[in-house]
Write a protein that binds this DNA or RNA. Structure first.
Length: 301
DNA sequence: CAAAGTTCCTGCGAGC
DNA sequence: TGCTCGCAGGAACTTT
């Protein structure tokens, strides 16, 4: 599910729901996700008031009143479901009509992949669900944030003053294909497989082009690299706009609707017609670094 | 069979 | 020749 725009959409949703509320209960239904949960996470979080919800790369950072930071990464399949005390959740009704008793006494959300359940002082509940368990939950003191292993090697935020010159500096001498570089979180953060494909298509750059060829001999960005940096920003901004427009819907906090509402130009469109004006090419699928890449060989050189 | 993400391991080439 | 370093590519994690 989540690349930067989807995580940003979730961030906005959690910010609206959580800031100002105090955690009264936290239930963990397993030892951990990708990594074990910190031993004392439950005890440290109970009683904490949420003060901010930030995002760094694809990580959600939830600040609390005692300067703790709850880190949440959604991996491939993580999502949050929010239940407010006044409304009857729609899918709880659906579940209740089947005689499958997977809803428990507390919340009605005790599916096999519901790993964390937060309860707040206003009676609201949030459930973290993640079938593949590639997600991460962690807790640390705010003062330790600069030395967090998960965060310290991250590259620039693409929507915060990221420049073509910065990109050129990091592209220099790299032999790997530009698609692979786009996915490297040290080059730029937040871009995943879908938006890497989309940005390259918009830029007219072949995913297989060696990264260093996007830098001039004098170390300056080529025209193509200027274009790529611009298109990464544009595709991310457009996707955030789509996600944001769905936010009033209670189901949207899981970020899924962000992808739903978005129709891609190349991703997952193998054998389809290239949608670029006057191109008439056919979308191909290739594999790079064990991941699917979609491209139009006609307009991406 | 493939999947939106990240980390870690291995193998290779460069350089000393 | 042999060793170390860094980079690039691939496997692994897991469930639907």
């Amino acid at each position: 599910m989540p690349e930067l725009p989807e995580v940003e959409t979730v961030r906005t949703g959690l910010e609206q729901a959580w800031v100002g509320r105090t955690i009264t209960q936290l239930t963990l239904r397993r030892e951990g996700l990708r990594f074990p949960f910190p031993e004392d996470m439950v005890n440290r979080l109970i009683g904490q008031k949420i003060t901010r919800v930030r995002r760094r790369a694809k990580y959600l950072l939830i600040d609390t009143s005692d300067n703790l930071v709850f880190l949440s990464h959604l991996g491939m399949s993580g999502r949050y479901t929010l239940i407010t005390p006044t409304e009857t959740p729609r899918y709880l009704q659906v579940d209740a009509s089947s005689n499958h008793s997977k809803f428990g006494a507390l919340t009605g959300f005790e599916g096999r992949h519901d790993h964390m359940e937060f309860r707040f002082d206003d009676g609201s509940v949030a459930v973290y669900t993640d079938p593949r368990r590639f997600g991460i939950a962690d807790l640390f003191d705010r003062a330790e944030e600069p030395i967090q292993p998960l965060l310290e090697h991250l590259g620039p935020e693409p929507l915060e003053n990221w420049t073509a010159q910065d990109a050129a500096n990091r592209c220099k001498g790299k032999r790997s294909p530009i698609k692979t570089t786009l996915l490297d979180q040290r080059f730029v953060v937040g871009v995943g497989n879908i938006y890497a494909c989309e940005a390259l298509h918009r830029s007219g750059i072949s995913p297989t082009r060696p990264t260093h060829k996007l830098v001039r001999k004098d170390g300056k960005p080529t025209k193509a690299l200027f274009e790529l940096v611009a298109q990464v920003k544009e595709v991310l901004i457009a996707a955030i706009a789509v996600g944001g427009s769905t936010l009033n819907d209670f189901a949207a906090v899981d970020g899924t609707l962000g992808y739903f509402g978005h129709h891609f130009q190349v991703y997952d469109r193998e054998d389809g017609p290239c949608l670029k004006e006057d191109c008439n090419g056919t979308i191909e699928r290739i594999v790079q670094s064990n991941r699917s890449t979609f491209l139009c060989p006609r307009c991406q050189k």
